[in-house]
């Protein structure tokens, strides 16, 4: 399991491959599920130019660990990877990666979805949008279900 807060831009797909290369689960995993959240240039009809993501050092990591431990108890998972950006983020940069590995697809699919939704509703991150007309804190996330 790896949970990391990143201050620098990352390529979620490359990171997933680097992580998998280091794991010793060849022959055991038959399913990989992943979610990648990427920076858009619009939200609520506004032209967004960049985004700044703030977090609560210590609590954010701790909360993500609690979410992952809950998933490990509920599903048969071989491994979990979470990467999340903070700081200033440009259009098309990846913001979040959640990846899960399991023997069969049910565990990987379901856990990836639930981890992502729990991250959205509880992990202490806050987005501030810089738009062509000003700066604004995002007040709530869109529903995932």
């Amino acid at each position: 399991m790896l949970i990391e807060i990143r201050k620098e831009a990352f390529n979620a797909y490359a990171e997933m491959q680097y992580y998998l290369d280091e794991l010793d689960i060849d022959g055991q995993y038959g399913a990989t599920a992943s979610f990648v959240g990427t920076m858009r240039d619009f939200n609520e009809d506004k032209n967004i130019t960049s985004l700044t993501l703030e977090y609560y050092p210590g609590m954010t990591e701790k909360h993500l660990e609690t979410i992952v431990n809950g998933a490990i108890e509920k599903w048969n998972l071989l491994d979990v990877l979470i990467l999340h950006r903070v700081g200033k983020i440009k259009i098309a940069e990846d913001i979040v990666l959640v990846a899960t590995w399991s023997a069969h697809r049910k565990d990987a699919f379901e856990s990836c979805r639930v981890i992502m939704e729990q991250l959205k509703s509880g992990a202490p991150f806050w987005k501030k949008e810089e738009t062509t007309t000003g700066v604004k804190w995002v007040e709530k996330n869109t529903p995932g279900f």
């Binding site: 959240g37 993501l53 977090y55 609560y56 210590g58 609590m59 701790k62 909360h63 999340h84 913001i95 979040v96 992502m116 991250l119 959205k120 509703s121 509880g122 992990a123 202490p124 991150f125 806050w126 987005k127 804190w137 995002v138 007040e139 709530k140 996330n141």
Partner: peptide
Amino acid sequence: MAVNMEYVKSEHQLKSGDEVAFFPPVTGG
């Protein structure tokens, strides 16, 4: 509301030295 980096209910009793955090609804991901 969080105390010592964990969410708490509003009636949670505080102790000396606690780290208490107040913040708006989270918007990560």
